[in-house]
Write a protein that binds this DNA or RNA. Structure first.
Lengths: 243, 243
DNA sequence: CGACTTGTTGACCTAGCTCAACAATAGTGG
DNA sequence: CCACTATTGTTGAGCTAGGTCAACAAGTCG
């Protein structure tokens, strides 16, 4: 194995001796442990709109989103409600006992480094350090989920859209590339943010008109005025916190 | 130790050989493990409005709410926003890296069986089964949090109030006692649900007028028509799921 | 009993929903 | 490559749930 191989890119292609990506889930593991874990976690690639097993059964997928995104939809009767979004770097964890029939769907071409819940449980049982890391991540996600949704519930449409754009703007992408792909249609953005498609459109256009963002195509944007965008999220306390 | 002592009540008073409450966190533990754990977890009693250490530091409290409730508040400048509520039976878990300065406050007289995060981490490291149970609970909470907030973001005021009442109505209380204590003022309910005090009042009164609930005093109610209340939550898919 | 907090109710006002028309894209088959 | 269709996005004109403001009632506590 070439020690200089960039970890962030080449994990998938080296099948003989795979490398774990640089992710907090794998922090502090010994080299040998990491190798065993890396042998279990394999890249899963999904096409746009492809359904990802995420139903709480032992066969469900657990892992880290490497690229693309995973949308969590509730499909009731005729209409789809998107209730969550996992982006690159996020952990797709145990889905727990479902009260709603949420399904995970790939957005864009999506790569997930992972394994089945069953296999993952075995790893957790075998490597206490992994379990510790995992617990930390789930806890952090719980926190993030609280923050995200708590606020959604009391934000205006403008604030919600700004929050989403901000979140997407923080996604890893090619250095110096200012273009952000919203990935989602207006319809899905609205669904995710609990507002209507038309309102999403109006808000995005308003940001463009105000010079806060540049709008290249409906889904391709660039943030021109990050400060204004942060202000528009309405998150007062973020001023104090390290973002 | 008297084997007939009701577990739900007497945990606190028996200091020589404490008993763990019947809670999923302690499922499947051997008797001796349970005894060691029970020796670490002590009842903490808080008065109404008392602040509970819940700041992500090693000294923060981790444990199970036995009675009363814990509100999570963001106190910015002059006004308090309640962003979450833990009721009896809920687990107060690691609070994770805080992005906002949320503080935990006791609502009513509140009893929590727990210990510091530091002590709890030691227990987790020592008892794998406990760690497994804990992970399950945190995962479940993540799920519940998603469900709760996700929906809040897209519910009407009526649906939000119905959802809260329903949740409170499912709290353990004296058998055959139909009276539910809302615990919170209209102001705090509104804050929790992301709506205004006046709207909360209007919704509650509307339910009372419609005969869905009985209103004995502003905070003491009884559910007269559970079906109507469930309908009013607007949770379509709950029909399919075991509640 | 008075002062203070909490709750109720009414009259307005506004953000965002609804409905509707139309524009811009993206496929798709010829 | 174009015409044809379907999807997605934009924009305007009302409408309504819930916010805002304000007055008052009802607890509650010294």
């Amino acid at each position: 194995m070439n020690a200089l191989t960039p970890m962030s890119e080449a994990t998938a292609v080296l099948s003989d001796r795979p490398v774990l990506p640089d992710h907090p889930l794998f922090a502090g593991l010994t080299r040998s442990d990491a190798e065993i874990i890396a042998a279990t976690l394999v890249p899963h690639v999904f096409k746009d709109e492809e359904i990802i097993r995420f139903d709480g059964t032992p066969d469900q997928l657990i892992g880290i989103v490497r690229s693309g995104a995973v949308a969590h939809d509730i499909r009731a009767a005729d209409k789809i409600t998107t209730v969550g979004l996992h982006l690159a770097g996020d952990l797709l964890s145990h889905s727990g006992p479902r009260t709603a029939s949420v399904m995970a769907v790939a957005v864009d071409r999506t790569e997930i480094l992972g394994c089945t819940m069953q296999e993952f449980n075995a790893l957790l049982a075998r490597f206490p350090r992994l379990q510790l890391n995992y617990l930390d991540l789930v806890t952090a996600e719980l926190q993030a989920t609280r923050d995200w949704y708590t606020l959604l519930g009391r934000k205006t449409a403008t604030e919600r859209v700004a929050t989403l754009i901000l979140r997407l703007s923080r996604q890893p992408r090619a250095p110096e590339d200012p273009v952000i792909d919203l990935l989602l249609t207006r319809e899905r953005i609205g669904s995710l943010l609990g507002i209507k498609m038309e309102t999403v459109s109006r808000q995005i256009r308003a940001f463009a008109k105000a010079g806060v963002i540049a709008l290249f195509s409906p889904t391709k944007i660039a943030v021109l005025d990050p400060t204004a965008l942060v202000d528009a999220t309405g998150d007062i306390w973020r001023e104090n916190a390290a973002l």
